[in-house]
Amino acid sequence: MNFRELVPKQAWIDLINRGQRRNYRRDAVLLRQGESAASVIALVEGTVKVLQTAESGDTLTLTLRGPGEALGEMGVILDLPRSATIRAVSGCVGYVLQAHAFRGYLDRHQLSRAVYQLAVERMQQVERMRADLARLAPAARLAHVLAHLAGEVGRPTDAGLLVELGMSREELAVMAGMGRSSAAPLLGRLQEAGILSLGRGQVMVKNLHRLEEMALGAANADDDLL
Rank of each mutant, 00 (worst) to 15 (best):
S90M: 08
I77W: 05
L64E: 03
P81H: 03
L62K: 09
E73V: 04
T59Q: 12
L51G: 02
G66W: 04
A54R: 15
V48E: 00
V50L: 13
G75M: 01
G57H: 08
S83P: 03
V48R: 01
V48P: 00
T63V: 13
I86A: 05
G72Q: 07
E73Y: 02
G57K: 07
K49V: 05
L64K: 04
V50C: 06
S83D: 11
L71Y: 06
C92W: 01
C92D: 04
R87H: 02
L78P: 01
Q52E: 15
G75F: 01
G57D: 07
G66P: 05
L78G: 01
V48T: 10
A84I: 04
E69L: 04
Q52A: 15
E69W: 11
R82G: 10
A84K: 00
G91S: 13
R65I: 09
V48L: 10
G68D: 11
V50K: 00
L78R: 15
V89D: 08
E69Q: 11
R82L: 12
M74C: 06
L60T: 14
R65Q: 14
A70I: 06
E69K: 01
T61E: 06
D58W: 11
K49S: 10
G68V: 08
T63A: 15
S83H: 10
A88N: 07
K49Y: 09
T85D: 07
G91T: 13
G66F: 04
T53R: 14
C92K: 03
L78I: 09
G72I: 04
G68T: 09
P67V: 10
K49C: 12
D58S: 12
T61F: 10
L78H: 08
S90P: 08
I86D: 01
S83I: 09
I77S: 03
T63R: 13
L62R: 07
L51K: 10
K49H: 14
T85E: 06
G68I: 05
A54T: 14
K49N: 14
R87G: 00
T61L: 12
G91V: 10
V50Q: 00
L71I: 14
R87L: 03
S90Y: 03
E73T: 02
A88T: 12
G68N: 07
S56I: 09
I86W: 05
D58L: 14
A54K: 14
T59R: 08
Q52F: 12
S56P: 04
T53Y: 01
T85P: 11
G72S: 08
T63S: 15
I77G: 00
D58T: 15
C92S: 11
L80G: 00
D58V: 12
